[in-house]
Nucleic acid binder design. Structure first.
Length: 574
RNA sequence: CGGGCUGUGGCGCAGUUUGGUUAGCGCGCUGCGUUCGGGACGCAGAGGUCCCCGGUUCAAAUCCGGGCAGCCCGACCA
C-alpha cells in the first residue's frame, strides 16, 4: 500500500477527550475517529487490525468445531418478551435501544441469546443433530450510561459471540471447556496476559461463568487472585474466609448498653460518636434489610467497615418494605429484631470473628444504638456466607492465603446457561434418545472484538506510538524512503524493494509522501508497524538498507540492498 | 441518575470577567521558493452558523433565560 493513497491523517495532538493511551494513540495514528459519544468509525488501518483479530478468532473457533452464522442485529420486540428480558430494558442491567418501525417494534440487539435460541429451535428437533455450536461476529448496541476510554466502553461494539446447544448438562460442560480452551488459545496468539476468573452472570444468567481478564491500569474491573492456590474471581463474585486469630478474650463478657445517637446517619457517623472509646466502623454491624430473589425479606449483616455484596436478584428494602416490617427501623436496625420477627438473618463470616467488647448495632428504635452486642447471646445468625466485597489481603476461601487485588479489563465472558432460555422460549426443545421432549442445554461465549483493539493498544505502545505485535499489525513492513523526492537512487531502490516485497506476498506500507524525514519517522513510530525498513542516501552509499523492529526487540540491522527483499520476507515469515 | 467542568475553522487553544470596528494564535491544509537522516523555514492564500433558540442593547463569542451536546468524578454495568 502506498501511503500517499491511504486514507490516513495523523494528528500531532490528540483530541481533548482522549484520556487513555489506547484512545489517544488510535486517534492520533488515524486508526479510528469518533462519530458520536461512544460511537467510532474504523478507518482503513483500524479495520485491518480489527480483521486480523477477527481472523484469529475465526481460526480458533472453527478449529474448536464451531460454525459461523450471522444473526440479525434487528430483533422483533416480541422475542424479548418471550424470554422475559424485555422487562430489563432501560435498566442498567440491559440498556437496550428500542426502535419503532413500520413493521412493529424492534430491539437493536444488545446480545443474541433470544435470536440464536429461536434459530436453533427451528432447525433442530432431535438429539441426533446435537451438539451444535454456532458463532458470529456482529455489532451489538447498548445504551451505555457512560461511554468512555475510546474503544474500551462504547455504545456500539463488535463482538464475537458463540452459543452451544447440548443434550444435557454434562455434555454442555464438555463443550464449555472446549470453548474455554479455544479462548485461551486466542488470547495466547494475541500475546495478552489473561486470567480467567469466576464472575457474576448479570443479565445473561446461568450458574457457572468466567470472565477473561487482562490486567491493566485503565481497567474498570477488579479481580482477586490467590498467589498460593490460584483462586481468581471478580470482586463482584469473590468470597473469602475469616481466619480465627485465636485471641478470644477471657475477660468478662461485655454488657449490653443503650445509647442515644441522634443525628448520626450512617456507620461512620455512629462510630465517630464512640471514637473516644477507640471504636471504628469495624466495630459496628452493618444491617441491611433486603428482599431476596424469591421475594422474601432477609437481614444481611456484615462488619461496618465492609461494602456489602448481595447475591444476584436481591435488592435493598424500599419504603414500602419497611412499612410491611415495622420491627425493622430504618437506620437503626439490630439483628435481634429480625430474630424476633422471624426474618432470616444471613451474616458475613466476618461477623463470626471474636470481638472484645461486642458489637455496636442499631437498637431498633429511632435515634438509638446498643453496644456490647454478642453473637449467640444477644442475636443469632441463621445462615453464614460471604456477603462483603472482598478486598486486598482478605483470606483466600480455599487456602486462606492473603488475596491480591488486580485492576483489569474484561476481554471476554463465558456462561453455562443451562435451560434459562430454552426452558421458556417456545420450541427450544428436541426429542432425546428415550423419546422425551427436553429443552436444549445451552452455553454462551462473548468476546469484545472492538474492545480488544483497545486492549491490544494498551498492552503494546510506548511514548512515541503503537507497537503492534506481528499477529495483528495492519501491515508487516513499513518501508520508509528518506529523501526520495530529490535523490533518485533512493526513489529507485525503495520502489524496487517495494515491488519485490509485494511480489513475495509481504504486506508493505511504503511512505511515498512528500514529507520531511522527521515527519516520516515520527509517523512510523506512531503507526507502530512491527518491521521498519529505512532506505536513505546514507545507507545506499554503503550498499545497505536499515531494518529495525518497532518494539526494539532486536538491534537495527544493515542489510545489503540485493538481499533485502529475501531477508525481510524471511523475517516476517512471508 | 447526582456533582463538577466545557462548547470558538480538521486538531489543540486564547478572547467572555469589564459588550464596540476586520474574532486571534499554534498545528494541519493550498501555491511558490529554500531546506530536509527525527515532527524545517520564508512569502502568499484558503477555511468560522463563535453549540442551538429566545431576550436585553445603537451594538452580543461576550450579558440574561431556556434547551442541546461533550468530558471528568461518583452511582451503575453484560
Amino acid at each position: 500500500m502506498r501511503m500517499s493513497r491511504l486514507l490516513l491523517r495523523t494528528l500531532r495532538e490528540a483530541p481533548a477527550d482522549a484520556e487513555v493511551a489506547s484512545h489517544r494513540l488510535l486517534v492520533r495514528a488515524g486508526y479510528i475517529r469518533r462519530l458520536a459519544s461512544g460511537v467510532y468509525t474504523f478507518l482503513p488501518l483500524g479495520v485491518r487490525v480489527l480483521h486480523r483479530i477477527e481472523r484469529i478468532i475465526r481460526e480458533e473457533l472453527d478449529g474448536a468445531g464451531c460454525q459461523e452464522v450471522l444473526l440479525p442485529a434487528l430483533h422483533p420486540f416480541e422475542l424479548w418478551e418471550e424470554s422475559g428480558r424485555a422487562a430489563l430494558f432501560g435498566s442498567d442491567a440491559l440498556p437496550a435501544l428500542v426502535v419503532e418501525g413500520r413493521g412493529g417494534r424492534f430491539v437493536l440487539g444488545p446480545t443474541h441469546e433470544e435470536v440464536v435460541t429461536a434459530t436453533l429451535a427451528a432447525e433442530v428437533d432431535s438429539y441426533r443433530q446435537l451438539p451444535q455450536t454456532v458463532y458470529q461476529i456482529q455489532t451489538k448496541f447498548r445504551d451505555e450510561a457512560r461511554p468512555r476510554f475510546g474503544l474500551l466502553r462504547t455504545r456500539e461494539l463488535i463482538m464475537a459471540d458463540a452459543y452451544s446447544f447440548d443434550v444435557d448438562s454434562a455434555a454442555m460442560q464438555g463443550t464449555y471447556d472446549g470453548i474455554y480452551q479455544a479462548y485461551l488459545r486466542i488470547f495466547g496468539r494475541l500475546g495478552l496476559d489473561v486470567t480467567p476468573v469466576e464472575a457474576s452472570s448479570g443479565a445473561i444468567g446461568g450458574e457457572v461463568n468466567h470472565e477473561f481478564m487482562v490486567p491493566s491500569p485503565v481497567g474498570e474491573d477488579h479481580f482477586v487472585r490467590c498467589p498460593a492456590c490460584g483462586y481468581a474471581a471478580n470482586v463482584e463474585a469473590a468470597v473469602r474466609q475469616v481466619v480465627d486469630a485465636g485471641g478470644q478474650s477471657d475477660g468478662a463478657p461485655p454488657a449490653l448498653e443503650l445509647h442515644h445517637t441522634p443525628d448520626r446517619p450512617g456507620i461512620d457517623a455512629v462510630a465517630e460518636q464512640f471514637s473516644s472509646r477507640g471504636v471504628t466502623a469495624a466495630d459496628l454491624l452493618k444491617c441491611l434489610a433486603v428482599v431476596d430473589g424469591d421475594g422474601r425479606a432477609r437481614l444481611v449483616v456484615l462488619p461496618g467497615d465492609r461494602d456489602a455484596r448481595l447475591p444476584g436478584g436481591w435488592r435493598l428494602f424500599e419504603d414500602a418494605d419497611f412499612a410491611a416490617h415495622p420491627s425493622l427501623v430504618k437506620g437503626y436496625i439490630g439483628p435481634d429484631a429480625a430474630n424476633g420477627a422471624g426474618i432470616p438473618v444471613v451474616a458475613d463470616v466476618g461477623v463470626r470473628a471474636p470481638r472484645v467488647g461486642g458489637w455496636i448495632t442499631g437498637a431498633n428504635r429511632p435515634d438509638h444504638h446498643v453496644s456490647g452486642a454478642v453473637l449467640d447471646r444477644d442475636f443469632t445468625v441463621d445462615e453464614w456466607g460471604s456477603y462483603a466485597v472482598v478486598v486486598e489481603g482478605d483470606a483466600c476461601p480455599r487456602c486462606a492465603a492473603p488475596l491480591d487485588l488486580v485492576r483489569s479489563v474484561e476481554a471476554a465472558h463465558t456462561f453455562q446457561l443451562g435451560t434459562k432460555y430454552s426452558g421458556v422460549m417456545s420450541g427450544a426443545t428436541f426429542v432425546d434418545e428415550a423419546g422425551d421432549e427436553v429443552p436444549f442445554c445451552m452455553g454462551c461465549y462473548g468476546m469484545g472484538v472492538s474492545r480488544l483493539v483497545a486492549v491490544m493498544a494498551e498492552a503494546f505502545h510506548d511514548d512515541a506510538g503503537l507497537t503492534w505485535p506481528a499477529a495483528i499489525a495492519p501491515f508487516a513492513v513499513h518501508l520508509v524512503p528518506l529523501g526520495a523526492g530529490r535523490v533518485v537512487e533512493v526513489a529507485d531502490a525503495a520502489d524496487t524493494l517495494y515491488q519485490e516485497l509485494v511480489a513475495r506476498g509481504v504486506e508493505v506500507l511504503v511512505d511515498d509522501r512528500q514529507a520531511s524525514p522527521g515527519v516520516s519517522l515520527a509517523d512510523a513510530d506512531l503507526l507502530g508497524i512491527p518491521v521498519r525498513v529505512v532506505v536513505g542516501a546514507k545507507g545506499l552509499a554503503r550498499g545497505v538498507v536499515e531494518v529495525s523492529r518497532r518494539d526494539g526487540s532486536s538491534p537495527q540491522e544493515d542489510v545489503p540492498v540485493a538481499e533485502a527483499a529475501g531477508v525481510i520476507a524471511a523475517l516476517v515469515g512471508a
